[in-house]
């Protein structure tokens, strides 16, 4: 099932997250717009510090720290205007209509409550269930994330379980109220490779089965390639390129995307060229150059790049989300006929 042009479940325009600093408020997320459709998996890729986790948290109305601020020109979840929500309203949404899975399953569960207790806590907070109903719902959810002996798992405490199992439980907690949107922030980074694959497949199955839209935050393009329908590449708080996964990976337009792809180790036979890194490192917020924030690390950069911020090309709200867009003054050009959009 590929994403269609039906109405998005989540539509965000011009999302900004700002933090105070000596030079005034700094935008760590700077004008991100995104749309998610039911059942699709959108990958949000970038190096650490590019603002992808803050974007994810901002979708749940969580600002970084007490002095961080989240704003947007429009933020809708189905027919609900998220921009109008106060903190109480957000609390009703979190965990029920938009949910989240975190990177560290080791520490993301409360160590002093049993698994069943924590699952039922989420259910009873958002649903008018009695104890029995909550128990049944919790057990059903555990079964649907692949546990055979649900009653035993519910009695366990987090420290008695392995990382992969804990991540499954966190996914169960996040999905137990059947949210429309799931934000998964590096859900497999802390896991070993075989467990990673299981968790990724689980996420994809759940998205397809329940129609939940997933925003998968990761630094790993291989994960994007494996399960995402679409991908967005983020650099210094802005989207530098977005499009269908296959188009973006095969025909990257933005030099940064190309750099990330070149830095990706591939074990395909015949490929002998060494893995290349991108020179330099991500500038800290506040030390970003004017113009394109990638200009300092980009070999294609000229005066235009250093003075003018490139806009996301084809960023027309009327255009379907499946379109491949990029924010670069001098995009890479691929042979005619190979580019999909």
């Amino acid at each position: 099932m590929s994403p269609t042009a039906e109405d998005p479940v989540l539509a965000v325009q011009d999302l900004r997250v700002t933090l105070p600093s000596r030079q005034g408020r700094l935008a760590v997320v700077d004008g991100v717009s995104l749309e998610l459709r039911a059942g699709e998996i959108l990958g949000l890729v970038g190096e650490s510090g590019c603002g992808k986790s803050m974007t994810g948290a901002a979708l749940l109305g969580i600002a970084p720290g007490p002095s961080g601020q989240v704003s947007s020109t429009a933020m809708r979840l189905g027919d609900l205007d998220l921009a109008q929500l106060d903190e109480r309203g957000w609390r009703r949404i979190r965990g029920s209509r938009i949910s989240m899975v975190f990177q560290e399953p080791q520490t993301a569960l409360d160590p002093v409550f049993s698994v069943g207790n924590q699952l039922q806590e989420v259910i009873r907070r958002h649903r008018q269930f009695n104890r029995r109903q909550a128990r049944t719902a919790a057990a059903d959810m555990l079964a649907s994330v692949g546990f055979a002996d649900c009653a035993r798992v519910m009695r366990c405490y987090p420290h008695e379980l392995s990382g992969g199992i804990r991540q499954r439980i966190l996914i169960a907690m996040a999905m137990v109220c059947h949210p429309q949107v799931l934000v998964a922030d590096e859900p497999t980074t802390a896991l070993d490779v075989t467990t990673q694959a299981q968790i990724l497949h689980l996420l994809r199955d759940l998205a397809r089965r329940s129609g939940t839209a997933v925003l998968l935050i990761t630094h790993d393009l291989a994960i994007v390639e494996a399960i995402c329908d679409r991908a967005m590449v983020m650099y210094c708080g802005r989207i530098s390129e977005e499009g269908p996964t296959r188009a973006l990976m095969q025909y990257p337009r933005h030099p940064y995307t190309a750099g990330l792809l070149a830095a990706m180790p591939r074990l395909s036979p015949g490929q002998v060229e060494p893995v290349k890194g991108i020179p330099g490192s991500v500038p800290a917020p506040g030390q970003r150059p004017p113009g394109c924030s990638f200009s300092k690390r980009c070999e294609r950069a000229d005066d235009l790049c250093r003075s003018q911020v490139p806009v996301l090309h084809g960023a027309d709200p009327a255009m379907p989300a499946a379109v491949h867009r990029h924010a670069c003054h001098h995009p890479l050009v691929h042979p005619i006929g190979s580019v999909t959009a």
Binding site: I62, R92, F102, T107, A108, L109, D110, F113, E121, V122
Partner: peptide
């Protein structure tokens, strides 16, 4: 500051629930 507090926040817990349930029992 623990990560599981972030989790319960992301699942909609109120300050009273965070403090009264998760923080208190962990600091017991």
């Amino acid at each position: 500051g623990r990560e599981h507090i972030r989790t319960v926040r992301a699942f909609g817990a109120s300050p009273a629930q965070i403090m009264g349930r998760h923080v208190l029992k962990n600091s017991l």
